[in-house]
Design a protein around this nucleic acid. Structure first.
Lengths: 363, 363
DNA sequence: TTGTACGCGTTATCAT
DNA sequence: ATGATAACGCGTACAA
């Protein structure tokens, strides 16, 4: 049992409490040999400082928080958090920090959550995820005096540092890949535009199209869920001139969209090219395997943790370079069908015929 | 800023620290009106007891831990944890407990993790997940004196209470469903047999077949990953007499297996019926949608949290009834093909021909 | 109800 | 320079 206290060590080493504390935190004022003896004794009797007592005396929680504000069922399908948490944890644990998790169902209950975390003194800082475009949380935390790191694209406010992999290169890569394959009518199934990563991916998509000299194709706002991805895809395919390729803001929607297309008898990628975002584990094993954008989420977590600890210790920010998101080309993307190539909004309109011809073209 | 202490409240209310503490914890010894006044003052000036100080004085961490021992990349695809954590958290937070998360890559680093959690006094108890058949952790924790609740099927050792949804009914339901559809050659892609939930699902599968009077079909051990699910499926399909239906130990492997079958030109469910386990969000949106087993993971988390808190408070265990796992029939299962029905190991062997005939049977 | 010791490190103050 | 001593952080709990 961990009944051991710093006094036991002090007694066993024949020194005072203070000396033990100094030795342990490698502070000057202890003779080298005394220090060595103290450390040896501590190890021998197996004593570790109680973080409870430590937290009280240094007036710090020695823990940071991650508040996840999502409906739990949506959470389940998101591959982001587990890996991200693994990254966070790897840095935090080696610095003696613990990670405290809080899941709140909706946004109403979120503000009190932060407040409680602060009031109770449970954490020294938090990670902010899933930010909305006009999110009140950064300001709230500033007001509460709780350091925070924003996960994702940087906001304009500059209140807190942001750590994130830029969405743009990956999405742009996907669009350019599709353009190179001859697609000129490229749609987008977006995440909520009110959310920063929904917004930024949408921006990247339209920007890339413009740069390629193409008119932005149809874009439909969804909510990152499979259900919404399928619905959005249905809408796109029902258009008078459906896109020949669709860029999805995440894998889950892409998978649902791909399945929906297949259920309508379309062949992916012959009749429709599809790209996702996340590089979920299953992505490589779908039929066809999914072309998607891959991010090093674990490294991302590590970077975020480092930044938050720096913030807490009021250390200057270290430059953090995250490997950029990368397009992983697989089999859900392919050359545009010859009879659809170069088609623009003003030409053709025999969709019915064309669509009929598309059916049943299994390889 | 939360510089407020219990003394501020005491002073403002004109009472002693002790009185405030008693009032707050609703303990006898304070006049009703005094209590009311104290509470009002506390609310007015916005004071919340510091959990740091509380933890030190009650000699408790007021937090519990969840140690996740998995390679992070496998973690990402698992829909279990996020929902489970949401369930845990909903109970813990209303009791003033925090959830501490720790992710360890492999089992070597796991034991020290628990030890540290105990030594540093960070938690009052932990949840044990992903148990192996002969897992040393329950005994280790007993030795460390740290209360634990096992997540999943009960172990034989009886050291710690187990909270879990029985795997059997769901798997049995799947098998019976397939048998009712005329399948008699039902394979299984198992999780690691050294893990309790891999083992229990495997047992449920073979038991259900025996009860149905059928010989257990081929079973292949995989590791719950998409990769392994695809590989196992490949092996099953390459058998001289491949099964007409496969029961997978989780959705991820089922999805990978289904895609693999499709890539070989098989039609699901016409040529091969498939069942998963988990009811991942995407399951309902696949093509075909996946017949799978659904569990109320959030409720499971709530139950586990309640049980652990009881254990910590040495309260008698409350009876916890978890809704049983339920088979969700979708479109990845269907009647066995007539020409394969009733086939036994001793009959037929014109697989090549049959397989050839199977190709290209899109609806 | 109040006063006060207690839990357990950390750190400022002193003595050597 | 070394190291000891005591105050401190903030609730809880028991004796008065």
């Amino acid at each position: 049992m961990s009944r051991l206290t710093i006094n036991d060590v002090a007694r066993a080493a024949g020194v005072s409490k203070g000396a033990v504390s100094f030795a342990l935190n490698s502070r000057p004022g202890v003779a080298p040999e005394t220090r060595a003896r103290i450390l040896r004794v501590a190890r021998d009797i197996g004593w570790t400082p109680s973080s409870r007592a430590r937290a009280l005396s240094v007036s710090r929680a020695l823990a940071v928080g991650l508040v996840i504000a999502r409906p739990p069922d949506t959470l389940g399908a998101d591959p982001f958090f587990p890996s991200f948490i693994a990254g966070l944890e790897s840095v935090l644990s080696e610095r003696g920090y613990a990670l405290l998790l809080q899941v709140v169902a909706n946004d109403d209950r979120e503000t009190p959550s932060y407040r409680r975390l602060v009031d109770e003194g449970r954490v020294d800082g938090v990670f902010l995820t899933d930010l909305f475009m006009d999110d009140p949380r950064p300001a709230l935390l500033a007001e509460l005096g709780l350091p925070a790191v924003v996960i994702g694209p940087a906001l304009g406010d500059g209140i807190w540092p942001a750590v994130g992999v830029d969405d743009a290169p990956g999405i742009i890569g996907a669009v350019e890949h599709l353009v190179a394959l001859g697609h000129s009518h490229i749609g987008h199934v977006a995440g909520p535009r009110g959310m920063v990563h929904g917004h930024s991916r949408q921006q990247a998509w339209s920007g890339a199209l413009l740069r390629a000299g193409l008119a932005p194709g149809p874009s439909i706002e969804a909510d990152f869920s499979a259900e919404s991805g399928a619905a959005a895809t249905r809408q796109l395919l029902d258009l008078a001139e459906p896109p020949t390729a669709i860029v999805y803001a995440n894998d889950l929607m892409a998978m649902a969209g791909m399945s929906l297309a297949q259920s309508r008898g379309l062949d992916v990628p012959r009749d429709l090219s599809i790209t996702g975002y996340d590089d979920t584990e299953i992505a490589a094993h779908l039929q066809p395997s999914l072309t998607t954008v891959s991010t090093d989420v674990i490294e991302w977590g590590r970077a975020a943790a480092k930044r938050l600890l720096e913030l807490i210790d009021t250390q200057p920010p270290t430059d953090i370079m995250l490997p950029p998101a990368q397009l992983v080309v697989r089999n859900s993307t392919g050359p545009v069908r010859a009879d659809l190539q170069g088609r623009t909004k003003t030409t053709h309109r025999r969709r019915q015929t064309t669509r009929g011809a598309r059916r049943m073209e299994k390889q």
